[in-house]
């Protein structure tokens, strides 16, 4: 078949590329701005002089972050949390979405289960009751406090459920006819075929775990168990009336590192690993997944 590229199509392709590049710039510029601040001197940053390029270039903020043993320790904790947490999350999302993606005839009580989960998307007890429960289930000061309470993310599960529904029923039927039970269908058929959705939801899960910092503050008592973002958040020294009672050493520390440069360096250190992992997950968003095993 001849595919003629009409003029309008050519124009569209060009404008599309330009347009999307502009939008991409919109997304990148704030990062460049923040990166520049993190590499600028304290006084320049405090005076608001930094726009898109460092002023008074210095590695000080990063050196401050990097020379602390705690930094690398918390980095390790974060990796552990992300790997463990994402595996747990993805596993639960996967096995929970599968039964719920069946139709109501195939699975009675499906609707009941679905609403049990769905309601938790709208109602929550809030911080204090959750804290009490976490405490009473013995998770305090353990990495599991960062993993179990959010182990089943209903939103992600619902997404996965919908992706499952898009998988042609014929695959399911063919396998069942061949005598496969639900477990085998799930792992041997659904798993390979849902890679794009697993990659997508996996990405969100990994990002969520990587960026979470507040739960660490709430549930962990020992600083050596802090994941990276929690640790970084404790570095921000609050400048308020305490300033009047600072000693010379404290002031010196404050002098060399303004809140601004530290904060932006912190943001970068926090976002960098994700930006590195992202391209690897990207190749799973493959266009045109072949479902060649099914004849329409």
């Amino acid at each position: 078949m001849l595919r003629k590229q009409t003029l309008s199509r050519k124009l569209f392709v060009v404008f599309n590329a330009i347009f999307l590049t502009c939008i991409s710039l919109l997304g990148i510029i704030p990062f460049i701005h923040l990166l520049s601040i993190s590499l600028s001197s304290n006084t320049a940053a405090m005076a608001g002089e930094v726009k898109l390029w460092p002023v008074g270039f210095t590695w000080d903020a990063y050196a401050y972050l990097g020379e602390k043993v705690e930094f690398f320790r918390s980095l390790g904790v974060s990796v552990k949390r992300v790997v463990l947490g994402s595996l747990v999350n993805m596993f639960l999302v996967f096995i929970t979405a599968f039964p719920l993606s069946k139709s109501n005839d195939q699975f009675k009580f499906r609707t009941v289960y679905v609403w049990i989960f769905a309601i938790t998307m709208f109602f929550g007890g809030g911080l204090i009751p959750t804290y009490i429960i976490v405490k009473n289930t013995g998770l305090m000061d353990s990495i599991w406090a960062l993993i179990l309470p959010g182990a089943l993310n209903v939103w992600n599960m619902v997404l996965m459920l919908n992706f499952f529904r898009n998988i042609p029923k014929e695959l399911d039927e063919a396998a069942t006819i061949d005598g496969a039970g639900h477990w085998r269908v799930l792992w041997q058929i659904y798993l390979p075929v849902s890679l794009p959705s697993i990659a997508t939801i996996g990405l969100f899960t990994i990002v969520g775990h990587w960026n979470a910092w507040f739960d660490g503050i709430l549930y962990l008592n020992s600083p050596e168990k802090y994941p990276l973002q929690t640790y970084l958040s404790t570095l921000i020294m609050s400048l308020n009336a305490q300033m009047s009672s600072m000693s010379v050493e404290q002031l010196k520390v404050m002098e060399n590192l303004s809140e601004k440069t530290i904060r932006t360096a912190q943001i970068f250190m926090g976002a960098l690993p994700i930006m590195v992992v992202y391209p690897f997950l990207q190749k799973y968003f493959v266009k045109g997944m072949t479902v060649g095993s099914v004849k329409e």
Binding site: L92, I95, K102, Y113, T120, G124, M157
Partner: peptide, 24 residues
């Protein structure tokens, strides 16, 4: 098997999502 697959999810949800709701 379908019911069994749902058990872990239900347990986690009951404890950590419904439990705190008592605080409402």
């Amino acid at each position: 098997p379908l019911h069994i697959m749902l058990i872990p999810g239900v347990i986690v949800t009951l404890i950590y999502a419904y439990g705190p709701m008592a605080g409402l």
